[in-house]
Design a protein around this nucleic acid. Structure first.
Lengths: 256, 256
DNA sequence: AGGCGCTTGTGAAGACACGCACAAATCGCG
DNA sequence: CGCGATTTGTGCGTGTCTTCACAAGCGCCT
């Protein structure tokens, strides 16, 4: 991904890079900055101010500057940040200087889509293998990859040096798959199954639950509905929503 | 999905239940508790302790108690929480007492999978309409729903009283679709496109970016690799982490 | 009835994150 | 060369989230 070799790019030659330990909140935003930076690079920008990058990434500029300051000082006062240099920096910190191989387990409805999602490839990842426990699915070819039986995981994981696994199985199978991934040497898991995984220390798990996202939105819908019902209460615990859940006219919110 | 009032539900008869304003972090965890509670209910548990529910939901028990305390006091000291009662409470707060209709825009690779994802239906949502801008896709039937052209959005949204929209289009089309959704009266958007959306006040947007999740994991892989490489360097401030933990904390400052 | 063990609910403290506001640094221009 | 315009990097106050630790409440057993 960092095809830019910027003059002055800070790759330490031989030395082992000092990886600063970043606040988790910062880490979660870096990919967002990176995407914005790639857009800027494509549209010909050489430098960008914190204000500009912040708005492109949808955050506050002070927050952005503080985030970037954790990586070191790679901006120039009075000018801004060098786009290509910053891309290299962030990609280095995120460990994207080499393409990482990912194993995807579960090629059902969702897994099938993930296998074909090109957003992974374009942002530094390679889906190196597909697995499923269902024998009737084994052998199927998706996007140029053949689905293998999940029992082959250990061998393939070693061969392809896979360190990241994606679980897209039903919830009931997820823990078992997680165990298999861990046993195969995988140390990071992205879990799409709606369940809690328990893994040993040293293994990172991130979870994406599509229904939960909707439920959070549902809460806000509920709240908005109850607020529009009573206009002006300054009271902290304003509350009581009068007269049931009557949905207010949706047209209301389209002000701006 | 307990549709309505539990026998012992604490809704004051005539009065309308107070909707407390909850910390955002709490809101994000409630769906997790809800899922765990449904599992417990199915396995015959009538009550559950904070410790039990917390471990089922993958959180700390003190945090869980504080979260639930924001909803009011629905536990019994010395006993625990009534599972069915708590389910009703959380579903009420999340606005899940009636099934919400969702519009899905973009039935490409990912959208197709989302349209067929049964996790939405089983957790309180109904995909009420599918849209796409590509005429060659319009008319296609997915899971019993016919794909319509995105221009039909306003009419259909009103008809089906849709308040939540899901965007599964390419990034380039996402902002335009968001505008159309807002114009059609949608006030909550779940965005799968890798880009920042700007929407008027009063409209909530949540974003799910699959590649970002992988990039965050990549960072942790990178960090783990650099740590094992140099066991005990006096690397400045490295560390602060007790032991070599790698606990997963799904919660990370996801604001609106 | 009374005591005992268990579990909730919460005050207080600590950790973390955010955003303001400003000093320090850099560039361009006269 | 110096000055003003611009933008970064950061110290600090503020607010939010997390965690601990314990008093208050409840049920059960004797």
């Amino acid at each position: 991904m960092s095809q830019h070799r910027h003059p002055g790019a800070p790759d330490r030659p031989g030395a082992v890079p000092a990886l600063p330990d970043l606040p988790e909140a910062t880490v979660a935003r870096l990919p967002e900055y990176l995407r914005a930076l790639h857009n800027l690079a494509e549209t010909g920008h050489e430098t960008v101010s914190s204000e500009g990058l912040a708005s492109a990434a949808g955050v506050n500029s002070a927050k952005l500057r503080k985030d970037l300051s954790h990586l070191g000082s790679y901006g120039t006062r009075g000018v801004g940040y060098d786009v290509a240099l910053l891309i290299d920096q962030i990609e280095y910190v995120l460990g994207l200087t080499h393409r990482r191989s990912v194993a995807l387990v579960g090629v059902g409805n969702l897994g099938h889509a993930l296998a074909g999602y090109d957003g992974f490839a374009t942002r530094g990842f390679r889906i190196a293998a597909l697995f499923d426990a269902d024998p009737s699915r084994v052998g199927e070819e998706i996007n140029g990859l053949v689905v293998r039986h999940v029992d082959e995981l250990p061998g393939v994981a070693a061969e392809e040096s896979i360190a990241i696994g994606v679980i897209a199985t039903p919830a009931a199978a997820a823990q078992r798959v997680a165990d298999q991934l861990v046993a195969a040497g995988v140390t990071s898991i992205l879990n799409f199954a709606p369940c809690v995984l328990s893994v040993p220390d040293g293994v990172d798990v991130r979870k994406v639950d599509l229904a939960i996202e909707l439920q959070i939105l549902s809460f806000h819908e509920h709240r908005k509905a109850s607020l529009t019902a009573l206009p002006a209460t300054g009271g902290s615990t304003l509350t009581a929503l009068p007269g049931g859940l009557a949905v207010t006219d949706p047209q209301e919110a389209i002000g701006t």
